[in-house]
Design a protein around this nucleic acid. Structure first.
Lengths: 193, 193
DNA sequence: ACACCGATGTCAGTCCCTGTCATCGGCTAG
DNA sequence: CTAGCCGATGACAGGGACTGACATCGGTGT
């Protein structure tokens, strides 16, 4: 065994989740999180850039899933179709994880600082999606808009999933929201003729 | 004349803009902003909630414009059409303000914390839009999605406006991006048949 | 055996932000 | 005219997030 207990990072994540849930984000200090994890405050900041980041572990992996799904979409797929495949890939990850997702989201929604962090992660997803679409040859107003619209669909679907009674999966809400986006866009203005 | 120079708030905004531009956001302290404005640090925090908020003055007014434009849209307008009217109203505000907008945006884009604040303001716009759409009787998946998509259009149009050489106005980019959104949404999937 | 490495600890310091109380010019009631 | 209240600001103390610099010491490779 090493000089210290292994997996300090994991213990910090667990401690933070518990404390943020019990006392709320603002009323929890980093020192408390570190103490519960059995490390010092300085060690916390070696693993996570700031007090919020501890809640956003899987972000990079999620972003990779999105971009590789778009990159791997058949060449015949339209931009929005490729994006839809990416969203469904993400939807698959959350199958059966409703409870965990709800706990996390409740913490985030209860605090504006955490919402800000969530939003910039989502914006990062959109930017990465747009970049991958451009690599597929999608020109630029369309690439950025498809990516932003796709992330909008994901946000709405996610919120509806967490709000709804258990039973339906995130995937269902993603498909429903995607269809709704198409419907909404078709029912407006001269360009929809 | 009062006991102090009037318009402390305005002086703080100007001082912050200048300093953030000269040294960057991170390398500027609130104490420096306050000193340049001729007040104390404590007074800064009486006018602005935090170090970032000083850059986001007109937000509430902008949000009011968005929501009242949607509320005032003719009853015959579809959700996306009503949203389009709101976006055009915002576009009108920025007529001729390209230089100022560019300076501000350059500061914001250079710093992730400021981007986070910008994103949560945008999310606030989307939430307000969605609420007003619901008041118009738009049911919920559609209301949220239309609002999110509308704000996505605004983001993309804004970015393109600031990137493009002077001449075209924000309004032009909003109309262009809106048309592109419709086109993108139509060119995908079975629901578009 | 020895040197190096990497994760952690320790400590000091800066800056953001808040609570509390004091100050004092202007306004209003009488 | 004067007393008293009000609102904006100043002054001060303090907590908590975050950073830089250096020390510690098991594990690892030679």
């Amino acid at each position: 065994m090493g000089r210290w207990e292994p997996n300090a990072r994991g213990r910090l994540e667990q401690a933070a989740l518990d404390l943020y849930e019990e006392r709320g984000f603002e009323k929890t200090t980093v020192a408390e999180i570190a103490a519960r994890a059995g490390v010092t405050e300085r060690t916390y900041f070696r693993h996570f850039a700031d007090k919020r980041e501890v809640l956003f572990g899987g972000t990079a992996e999620l972003q990779d899933m999105l971009t590789s799904a778009v990159a791997d979409a058949p060449a015949s797929a339209t931009p929005l179709e490729a994006t839809a495949l990416a969203l469904e890939a993400v939807g698959g990850v959350f199958l059966g994880n409703l409870d965990r997702a709800r706990r996390r989201q409740a913490i985030i929604m209860a605090n504006p600082e955490l919402r800000e962090r969530e939003l910039i992660k989502m914006a990062g997803f959109a930017a990465a999606l747009a970049g991958t679409l451009r690599e597929r040859g999608v020109p630029d107003p369309a690439a950025a808009l498809t990516a932003e619209a796709g992330i909008a669909v994901l946000k709405v679907a996610f919120a509806r999933w967490l709000d709804a009674p258990a039973g339906k999966e995130l995937l269902d809400f993603i498909r429903e929201s995607l269809a709704e986006l198409r419907s909404v866009a078709r029912s407006a203005g001269p360009a929809a003729v």
